[in-house]
């Protein structure tokens, strides 16, 4: 079975600065991969490239076997149109550090925007599914509320439900708890743990080392735009083999 997400020799530049250096990563169905590393190491950039919010300058990213952002014609990669890219993005859920809920839409409308208006699925089915998702993240009572009326933790749980409502093949989490007050981190992490247990394919950029250790199938350490080491939580966090990983882990724990 082909991996859900495959990044092969990915290069990304911001002007002269190389943000991703020859990054290769493969995520299988149902796998939970946590990416850790110091800030500015390219973790978020990798996620943003995988969700096609940023374009890449070299290499290939494929989602479920389909090349992201390009059509292959022989040895040439031809960029896809905005519409085709938008269709591909439906397969990749994204949860942002700052939630990015739509403030002018109620919680339920935030969940329905994608499936009803973009995917054009039957409204009644979507509504039922959305309510089930809200129940799953423990926010049924907030369906009619507006995002600004919710706490940060509640907003992030809604954002996770919004990503799920698209029925994505994979969900990418870009530091989902970094903008939260410490006492609200737990409620978001517990939703993510449940999601991982349910078999969702997830890539999580995070500083929550304890979460990585408990939930990740594989931990990836990035530094300076490159993947330095990858391995099981045991090998990466409990008894880090790589000296750079070891010094990072001891610094954050």
């Amino acid at each position: 079975m082909s991996p859900i997400l495959q990044a092969v020799h990915v290069q990304k530049y911001y002007g002269a600065f190389q943000a991703l250096k020859d990054v290769s990563l493969s995520v299988d169905r149902g796998e939970v991969v946590c990416i850790i590393g110091p800030s500015g190491s390219g973790k978020s950039t990798l996620l943003r490239c995988a969700s096609q919010l940023e374009s890449i300058d070299g290499g290939v990213i494929a989602v479920d076997g389909e090349i992201a952002g390009f059509r292959r014609s022989g040895d040439t990669l031809v960029p896809l149109s905005d519409g085709q890219t938008a269709r591909q993005r439906q397969n990749v859920g994204m949860v942002f550090q700052r939630f990015n809920l739509f403030p002018h839409r109620s919680v339920l409308e935030n969940l329905l925007e994608g499936p009803v208006r973009v995917q054009k699925r039957p409204a009644e089915d979507c509504r039922r599914e959305a309510m089930a998702l809200l129940e799953r993240v423990g926010l049924t009572a907030k369906a009619a509320s507006y995002p600004n009326e919710l706490s940060g933790g509640q907003q992030q749980r809604v954002a996770i439900a919004r990503a799920l409502a698209m029925r994505p093949k994979i969900i990418l989490f870009d530091e989902p708890t970094s903008a939260l007050d410490p006492e609200l981190v737990g409620e978001v992490l517990s939703v993510m743990k449940e999601l991982a247990k349910s078999g969702m394919t997830m890539v999580v950029v995070t500083h929550e080392i304890a979460f990585c250790r408990e939930v990740a199938d594989r931990v990836v350490f990035m530094d300076g735009g490159a993947i330095i080491a990858t391995g099981s939580p045991e090998d990466m966090i409990v008894r880090p083999q790589n000296p750079r990983v070891a010094s990072f882990i001891s610094a954050v724990l």
């Binding site: 859920g93 990015n100 973009v118 990503a163």
Partner: peptide
Amino acid sequence: GQMEAAQSIGM
């Protein structure tokens, strides 16, 4: 982030 979130749900 609003544009990005909208794009992430396929708009």
